[in-house]
C-alpha cells in the first residue's frame, strides 16, 4: 500500500514537472479564458497588500478559500466574472505556483 502511494506520487510530480509548469499549466492555462488578466490581478494585490510576504499570504488565502470578502475585485467584476473556483492544488504546489506568479510580475529590479 505504502509503496503504491509513493509510486503514484512520483508519477504525479513527474507529470507536473518544474515550478514554472505548475503555474503555466494550472493558473495561466485557466486564466487565458478569464478577465481581468493575471498581470492586472497581480497589481491589484500589490496595491492592497504591498510586500512580497503579505501578497503571497493573501493569494494563498484566496486561492484556498475564495470568498467575496477576500477578493480584491469589485462587486461588479465579481458579478460579471464570478469568484475563482477553489484550487485543487496541494499546498506545496500552490506555493510554488504563487512563487512563480510573484517572480513573473514583481516590480523589483524592473523599474528604471
Amino acid at each position: 500500500m505504502g509503496r503504491l502511494s509513493v509510486t503514484i506520487l512520483l508519477i504525479l510530480s513527474a507529470l507536473q514537472g518544474s515550478n514554472v509548469n505548475v503555474y503555466e499549466r494550472n493558473c495561466v492555462a485557466c486564466h487565458r479564458h478569464v478577465s481581468p488578466s493575471l498581470e492586472k490581478l497581480f497589481f491589484d494585490y500589490l496595491l492592497k497588500y504591498s510586500s512580497e510576504r503579505r501578497v503571497k499570504r493573501a493569494l494563498a488565502d484566496y486561492l484556498k478559500h475564495p470568498t467575496k470578502k477576500r477578493s480584491v475585485a469589485s462587486e461588479e467584476v465579481i458579478q460579471k466574472y464570478g469568484l475563482m473556483p477553489k484550487t485543487w492544488l496541494r499546498d506545496t504546489d500552490l506555493h510554488k505556483a504563487i512563487d512563480t506568479y510573484w517572480e513573473t510580475y514583481k516590480v523589483f529590479g524592473k523599474i528604471k
Partner: peptide
C-alpha cells in the same frame, strides 16, 4: 493608503 507598485 494605496500601495502603488507595492509602495507603502
Amino acid at each position: 493608503d494605496s500601495y502603488y507598485l507595492g509602495a507603502k
